[in-house]
Write a protein that binds this DNA or RNA. Structure first.
Lengths: 344, 344
DNA sequence: TTTAGCACTCACAGAAAAAGAGTGCTAAAG
DNA sequence: CTTTAGCACTCTTTTTCTGTGAGTGCTAAA
């Protein structure tokens, strides 16, 4: 059976009405609101066809129709009218970034909040994959007899600091020496590579300072390594209560637990190809318990190599067009602001 | 009317049975489970008296009785048996802190999680009031022609860092000079005081470096000032779904919104006097929408002057004894660990 | 002062009934 | 061959009604 013009119109109407109302939509509604001049009986025939093709489904006999995953997919890929952001949306976004760029962390956190407010869905952002960042240099500043301050500067302008305990008998000159060696050997390496290779060599090379090295390494790994790249920023947790899909408490329970755990959220965001916004609908999400949700995701960049991910999670009946352009615009802006403030 | 021994026993029984079951408790239950040898009719009389005194209330005629705010208050103040932490609880706590002390932030975050797991309620912790911290010293490290790194060390061993833009023509010696002046003038002052008084003087004194000073000041205020002391750490958000008090979605909605906002939570935790755990029951919380909740709160200390607050929010029918001792023990431990790692 | 007995109240659960929305099918019209 | 009107049918949702049980308050006796 062919998807002719009118079938597409019917599909589009069903999707858009359902997105707005959340109620299954019937033939009469369409014949009166969307395709005036065509009788409800005709629409019924078209709908039966669309159902046979797997684009619509019926919650039960004698209810209206609801789009299926594939129905949404066709809508998103072919039918969705382009959405241009409203003045209001644009100014909301630009006013956030207009302020002086503050710390990266809080900027990302604010972005999550912004996205959730603008979309009314749940926004999640993964911190940049810092393990891909490259080491620039470090300094060791003696504070007093026993303690010294270690400062790390990386590629993207990130700074990390930590306290070192200095064993008795190690003086400032020796700390300088350690720093010099480290700087010389590690410059330009990615954090990953340092953790994997370079470290072992250094450890035997500077074995008399092992105690200090261990601490420095610890700091490097803890703050920049695997753990921190999984950092999740959330906005709009309360929004998930808004849509009726989650009025069932069990659903809510499992989703909230997932959110709390944060680990579950990391795998949620799929790999996204560059400068593209990806939409995953219902069952296209691998997570069983999210089969009633959809996700709109994209990447952001800091400089050439550092990337993080942004996603908006909402009910399957999501305002795809609007969210799509919001996510696109926000990731672009975020990338620009972060890159600028990191000195690229 | 006097609160004789038996009335107190009845009150205690009602509270403890209701805390466990969540169901209003009737005279028969008490006569059989708690005061064997006294008939239900007698209990009914006692209960009527207790109700008249405002310690119990009836959801409706012909339901059992439920403790009122004042009833809980009497229970908490006089009737509650002391709770000693179980082996299990103790080991859960000590195993968290046994690990090497990591960053303060993550330690606090973990504590929130721990408390929520141990109590099954919502745990919230306010970060320490950094504005009470005193300035120790700062360093300015030139990174390249245009940028320098500012490192702040304060009283409690906290470090803050930030990038400075250095205007053309300002060389390393001048940066050293600025740092020296600042160190000399600000040492030992609280951050609050610097913000209020000292700053203005310095600004005119070093007016030719105003651009750099502004940035340094900005950093100081942003990271250590008012804003950051309101930082809220949460654990167990999902727990609030557990208790039936919040099965009504509107309630949940408003609480979650409050949680998300975080501002609302700051005022939630009352001023607490030192080394004491405070319990606020139902209407004793000023927030209207939390009149079905109770809060157990305490202070923690880092060194002599820095304080933060810890709270556990749960349903009014809370296991007060257990939560009380948990909060007490956790704040003590947290204080000790944080103080030690800050070098006190 | 305590207890037994009894009538009364109220929420809750389940069944039955009524209302409503929407469909599928058939037959007629264009 | 396509579109439309009409109608019976299905299924959910809402409302109404009724029975049941837990628990109380009161009275009178121990």
């Amino acid at each position: 059976m062919r998807l002719d013009e009118r079938k597409l119109q019917v599909l589009q109407s069903v999707v858009e009405d359902f997105v707005r109302s959340g109620e299954p939509v019937g033939s009469r509604t369409i014949s009166r609101k969307y395709l005036v001049g065509v009788s409800s009986a005709t629409i019924r025939n078209e709908m039966a066809d669309l159902e046979e093709m797997g684009l619509l489904e019926q919650p039960h006999t004698s209810a209206g129709r609801v789009p299926s995953d594939r129905g949404y997919r066709v809508y998103v890929d072919h039918l969705m009218p382009p959405h241009t952001l409203t003045e209001q949306e644009l100014s909301l976004i630009s006013s956030l970034y207009a302020r002086k760029a503050r710390e990266m962390e809080s900027l990302i956190q604010q972005t999550a909040r912004l996205l959730s407010e603008a979309t009314n869905y749940l926004a999640l952002i993964l911190g940049p994959q810092l393990s891909q960042t490259t080491f620039r240099h470090l300094k060791i500043l003696p504070l007093n007899e026993e303690k010294a301050l270690l400062v790390l500067v990386t590629d993207a302008g990130f700074l990390e600091k930590g306290l070192l305990e200095v064993p008795g008998g190690v003086g400032p000159q020796e700390l300088d020496y350690i720093a010099a060696v480290l700087n010389d050997r590690l410059r330009g390496m990615t954090v990953d590579r340092i953790a994997q290779e370079a470290w072992k060599e250094l450890r035997s090379e500077l074995s008399q300072y092992r105690f200090i090295l261990e601490q420095a390494f610890q700091l490097l790994v803890e703050t920049v390594g695997k753990e921190s790249e999984e950092r999740v920023y959330l906005g709009g947790t309360a929004n998930i209560l808004r849509f009726p899909e989650f009025q069932r408490l069990e659903r809510l329970q499992s989703l909230l637990a997932r959110i709390e755990g944060e680990e579950g959220l990391v795998n949620l965001l799929p790999e996204v190809s560059d400068s593209q916004v990806v939409i995953l609908i219902g069952g296209e999400l691998t997570q069983q318990d999210l089969r009633d949700c959809s996700l709109v995701a994209a990447k952001y960049h800091i400089g050439p190599s550092l990337v993080g991910r942004v996603g908006v999670l909402g009910p399957r009946r999501m305002e795809y067009a609007r969210v799509l352009s919001l996510v696109g615009h926000v990731t672009e802006t975020l990338s620009r602001v972060l890159s600028r403030s990191a000195g690229f």
